[in-house]
Amino acid sequence: MIRRRFLVLSGSGLIVPLLPAPARATPTQVAALIANLVGEGEIHDGRVKLDIPVMVENGNSVGMTVSLDAPATDVRSIDVFAEGNPLPHVLRVTFGPQAGAPRFATRIRLATSQTVIAVAKLADGSCWRDSVDLLVTLAACVYNAN
């Protein structure tokens, strides 16, 4: 009997969640952010290129490059969003007359496997999008220091 009670107790312990679920943005929230950015115009696929690995071992630092096949002077802004991060907006870049190409590379954090989206807005008002579905093995730490 004692052994059985021990099993019941230890079994019930297993279903207690160890950590609260992390706060995450949802694709709907990101869609709203993008709609806000695009305004009345339509968003097209293509022209902008988001270069990021589809298999990520360490979400704390993921190299990415976003670029556009247009002269830098024609670009109003480039934004990057990560749907599964607690704060989905990753960066915004605008280019000036001395930019050699509309290209920007950096390293970002990814909280989980998710879709990363780049949106470029051109001077003529048209908007272009590229998205990458990726798998993250080790997520960027959102809980505790150390």
Partner: peptide
């Protein structure tokens, strides 16, 4: 260029 960076960097 000008860049706005967010905590995901």
């Amino acid at each position: 260029l000008r860049a706005d960076l967010f905590p995901a960097i």
